[in-house]
Design a binder for these strands. Structure first.
Lengths: 161, 161
DNA sequence: CCTGAAAATCGCAGTCG
DNA sequence: CGACTGCGATTTTCAGG
């Protein structure tokens, strides 16, 4: 499952999470590898599915979406189709997690205004009951994963396949 | 606030959100601009703070963090310092949102195991009471913002302050 | 915003440890 | 088998229109 990443792989992941547009030459320098060696490592991480993609991050407020909210959706029954359709259709839904607990789904929504958010919530209310919380701020701007096989390997068994 | 983005800017944002490593040449082609014009647009979006960065996305499970959880933190009083310290210290905390509602903070945590998650939650319990939900799956893999000044400009006033 | 040339980078070979 | 070196193509960057 975990593709057995060594320290160099982790260094690469850290750098590319920090700056996804890093040239392979510069990346090589930072992890003490030649450009071609770094390239091969990166290609391997990509095809192994460890790196799933590279994306620009956009400031929501500056892009005209000053309202962010977290909506929890309590979804009776198991008919996922309508929700999935909504996820595809409404690009304002930035993220959707299916979770344990009373609320089956947790959605992160960006809106142009409270009115806009209200419209979005109304659409969700056709599926189930919702709990909405506005987002004041994001105290954790951005950061990648822990750099390396995380220190806290507590209770290590991840379910020995 | 919103830096007055035109259709071309939005096209650029869409492309770069989909593939952050797109060459400026290729980007130019896709938005019908010369490479240098595309470059200037991108530079402008970057320095205006609309594009906040470029990041590689990593598959959590493949990187050895198969357990993801959402933890809501009910934080009595207004002493933010200890939490902020924890956010800096613990890279397992992927995201932190300060929200309205009974729970002041919402955290997204990645862990190597349930035991590891338990340790994380214990640390948070020193700050306040928590509600934890495991994440089954993420039905919405990745997607950028809505392409353009969002259709639903409903109730347009974003609160004139 | 486009054209055009210099510099850097990328991708592909080949070769060594 | 994994990592370093040399050449052609592409891309980036900077000047000028």
């Amino acid at each position: 499952m975990t593709e057995n990443l060594d320290a160099t792989d982790w260094a690469i992941l850290t750098e590319l999470q920090r700056d996804g547009r890093l040239s392979l030459t510069e990346l090589g320098k930072r992890v003490s590898l030649s450009a071609s060696a770094a390239t091969e490592r990166v290609r391997r991480l990509e095809s192994a599915g460890v790196i799933t993609g590279y994306h620009a991050r956009v400031d929501l407020a500056k892009a005209g979406l000053p309202v962010t909210a977290v909506v929890r959706l309590k979804y009776p029954g198991n008919r996922h189709a309508p929700l999935h359709a909504l996820l595809r259709e409404r690009a304002e839904i930035l993220e959707c997690l299916r979770t344990t607990g009373e609320d089956c789904y947790l959605l992160k929504i960006a809106a142009t205004s409270l009115g806009h958010l209200e419209t979005m919530v109304d659409e969700l209310l056709e599926l189930g009951s919702t709990t909405t919380n506005l987002v004041y701020s994001e105290p954790l701007p951005y950061r990648g994963l822990p750099a390396g096989p995380v220190g806290g390997r507590v209770g290590g068994q991840t379910g020995g396949g």
